[in-house]
């Protein structure tokens, strides 16, 4: 078996009285782009937070690069993009990127190239609070990729982006993986799933598929991923 970057075993997460993830298992191979797909409320963000190490878990283990999730040594190796843009609205795009770069001991030129990478070079001197929603999301993405982390956890990075930009961002993600990074990208847009090496389909806290996009489609007997998702859910319910 190839190198595993992220390993989740028997993970149970409860939020309030609700069990969000119930004995969840999955693994993400190193150097790949893995798509995490599922409807809103299925547990995608909770799973990502557990991998990043900011989620209180009831039981089970999450191992990232051979260390327990949340280990202090992992903080240098991991980039996390939250679903809602978490950048300072009262700073410019460039100031945000430079601040996050400085936390890793990186210089301002590294920060500025991260800003260009997300297509915000022209807006670098604007306050984040004055940007459009899509631009704001990209400013947040710039801060997640600025440290060139080995593990990138991206929660819905392409929501609200223009199709051309979305294409560019996916090309960028592919490039990161080619350079050896491992990416876990959540989305609820099925057409983005075709761009992933592997897919994790999740619904109501349970994994319903873990395979390549082609294999998922083959198993469901359809070329359309939306339909494949539906078929797999129905097949699961019949059991």
């Amino acid at each position: 078996m190839e190198n595993t970057a992220i390993e989740v075993k028997d993970l149970v997460v409860k939020r309030g009285k609700r069990t969000v993830l119930d004995r969840f298992n999955c693994s993400v191979p190193a150097g790949t782009v893995t798509g995490l797909l599922g409807p809103s409320g299925s547990g995608k963000t909770t799973l990502m937070r557990a991998i990043v190490g900011v989620q209180i878990v009831a039981s089970g283990t999450v191992t990232v690069l051979g260390k327990a999730a949340g280990d202090a040594a992992l903080r240098r190796e991991l980039g996390y993009l939250t679903q809602a843009p978490s950048v300072y609205a009262d700073l410019t795009v460039r100031e945000n990127a430079r601040y996050f770069a400085s936390l890793y001991g990186l210089d301002s030129s590294t920060a500025d190239s991260a800003v260009s990478d997300v297509g915000l070079a022209d807006a670098a001197t604007q306050l984040v609070g004055d940007l459009s929603g899509g631009q704001r999301a990209r400013a947040s993405l710039a801060c997640a990729i600025v440290s060139q982390p080995k593990i990138l956890i991206l929660d819905e990075p392409t929501v609200g982006q223009d199709p051309v930009l979305r294409d560019e961002l996916w090309a960028r993600f592919r490039k990161f993986a080619e350079d050896g990074a491992t990416l876990l990208v959540s989305s609820h847009v099925m057409d983005e799933a075709n761009r992933c090496d592997r897919l994790l389909l999740i619904r109501e806290g349970k994994l319903i598929a873990d395979d390549t996009p082609a294999a998922v489609k083959a198993a469901a007997g359809t070329e359309d991923l939306d339909q494949a998702f539906l078929n797999l859910i129905r097949a699961g319910e019949k059991k």
Partner: peptide, 13 residues
């Protein structure tokens, strides 16, 4: 509330 604290706590800060 804006999530910057959660993000900061995932960095070496």
């Amino acid at each position: 509330t804006t999530g910057t604290l959660e993000r900061l706590l995932t960095t070496p800060l």
